[in-house]
Design a protein around this nucleic acid. Structure first.
Lengths: 222, 222
DNA sequence: CTGCAATATTCAGCTTGAATTAAGTTTTTG
DNA sequence: CAAAAACTTAATTCAAGCTGAATATTGCAG
């Protein structure tokens, strides 16, 4: 298991690094945002522990950039105590978990292994969601109930795109552009039709429509 | 959020306009330099996207004239690929950022929101407030209690504008102009209605009424 | 090559909900 | 207190979205 630790505090950083190494992880330590982003793109880490307060580039931005490049490496963020906005922002940017500083090293261990377990499915070509999973090899969704549904090519591409961008408003134009290679289609309701079919297969609540703006996957209700 | 798009290409112009509109901006499109300059002086835009190769009057000159008249509206310039002289000249004339053509629409979005945030002095990804935060991706407000509220397009544009101008008295006319593309409202109480709806979602105290003048967001007392 | 099945796309009638207007109520202030 | 401004609620409306079915296309087996 290979971890990237991004922490600029000159005491805490190396301290965490050795603690994690003793726990059996291979740990690279990085101390600024720009370097972290490059490093994360370069090497295939199994997990990243990311401090948000970083020199050169804010941790949140680093995370967002990774996610925009479709990186799915699990990320645990370290936030200052009580800053709930940071946590919300972190989750929205695609973090998998967070820990408030200061924390017990045991808590970090616990969360790391929890996140790694949860994300174990990812490595095997599966996209996980709270209520179902998508097998990328067989292009099949498996619901909580055990029910399976095969997806057609277009259904699959659309759903995968949704799952890679949860919580974002995705306009029909954007979706068309990503589902089809090159297409500047005018008035077609293909996306509506396929959203309809996906809802029939995975349930109605998971793709929310934002009238006039697009669709949001996996966001909670209001 | 109201943008002025200056682009003479008859394909690219309208294409960008609709893309930006779908992203939630009110966009006016202008196709020549003279008209652009007048329009920019006339209306209170939040940002200008300016192509440099324009008929009637070069984009650079338009920009310089605006700046000479003390307009501080952020400007993103579109330049032909690799023409670094243009970029330098653009920055010297007072541009805030540039994009080389051809570009991905996502890059434009990214730069627009970066420039808007920079110009309003805000951090990235989310608009924060002491008592709630606004997630621009899902167009959702998250209250301190964890409660979430989806916003409609108009509610979102209005609230974002408030959040980018905290502590300022914003007249109904000004708000109408920024939330809608074409203003010139007779007497309509749209703003009152939407302020009412926002107050229901984020709480009553956050938007204060300044009778006869407008509204103030996030100010303490009066 | 032909015909069939699977998938993709278009279409049309129907439903929904955001935006707008309007009307009635409350608050402010001169 | 009266008039103006702002608030609130409710009704209307029409574009956006939904959806089942028809039609077109594609890939493949015979």
């Amino acid at each position: 298991m290979r971890l990237l630790l991004v922490e600029d505090d000159p005491t805490l950083g190396p301290q965490l690094q050795t603690a994690l190494q003793r726990a059996g992880y291979a740990v690279d330590l990085t101390t600024d945002g720009v370097e972290a982003e490059i490093q994360g793109d370069l090497e295939p880490y199994d997990l990243v522990v990311l401090d948000l307060g970083l020199p050169k580039r804010p941790g949140l931005e680093v995370l967002q950039n990774w996610r925009n490049r479709d990186s799915r490496t699990p990320v645990i963020i370290l936030t200052a105590r009580g800053s709930w906005q940071e946590k919300v922002a972190g989750f929205n940017a695609g973090a998998d978990d967070y820990i408030s500083k200061p924390f017990q090293i045991e808590e970090l261990f616990a969360r790391i292994s929890a996140v790694l377990k949860r994300s174990a499915g990812f490595a095997s070509g599966e996209l996980q969601h709270e209520h179902f999973s998508l097998d990328e090899h067989s292009q099949t969704v498996i619901l909580e109930s055990g029910e399976r549904h095969d997806l057609t090519g277009t259904e699959f591409r659309l759903l995968r795109y949704f799952m890679l961008h949860p919580g974002h408003v995705l306009s029909k134009t954007a979706l068309t552009a990503h589902v089809y290679e090159y297409d500047e289609d005018k008035d077609s309701n293909v996306i509506e039709v396929y959203v309809n079919r996906l809802r029939q297969k995975i349930g109605n609540d998971l793709i929310q429509t934002k009238r006039g703006q697009g669709y949001v996957f996996g966001a909670r209700q209001s």
